[in-house]
Amino acid sequence: MIVLDGVSKVYHGADGEVRALDDVSLTVAPGEFVAVRGPSGCGKSTLLLTVGGMVRPTAGTMSIDGSDLYALGPARRARLRAERIGFVFQLFHLIPYLNALDNVLAPALAGMHSDRSEAAALLERLGMGERMHHRPPELSTGERQRVALARALIKRPEIILADEPTGNLDPENAAAVTGYLADFHRDGGTILVVSHDDLAAENADRTLHLERGRVV
């Protein structure tokens, strides 16, 4: 279970103080699919990165299954992220010089079990069987997002945090990626997805609205 309790995040920039999250309290149950919507700059990405253990809140606590993420040291937090959380980004963030198969295997660097045949089977399942030896610049945006999704799924995480996973995709690919996320959810996975489009919201158990860093 993911629990945010009174979480605030304040950035201090050249233009002064920016309150990205403002006293957010939220619980996501195991196996729940939660969509987060809101205008640009409302704090959606900060929320995801905070849940993923990558942005330390200015105030409040964030815990997974009762373990306060930010009370852990950086190494244990990284370990927890490697073992339990998969990230999917709007811009895919694939490693440009590795082919699709090696991109999917990248979590092996974090000590996760990795098997080339398993990675290949996963790419096959996501319709990438013919393209697994191509590097990201040789892939379409839809294909890149599928590779990114495979990279998140290969370590069999309990939680997927997706930041606008369909934001750069055409409707067909957006539907396919949303479908894969829905499959993960059906298999018992927890999803927190930030998305502007309606597809995610349609598949989600519930939708949260974020405005100026607050859940409304």
Partner: peptide, 16 residues
């Protein structure tokens, strides 16, 4: 920088 950021997001520790 982005590649390093992604690796950290995947939980890759400092040593690798």
């Amino acid at each position: 920088r982005v590649e390093i950021g992604v690796l950290r997001a995947l939980g890759v520790a400092s040593q690798p």
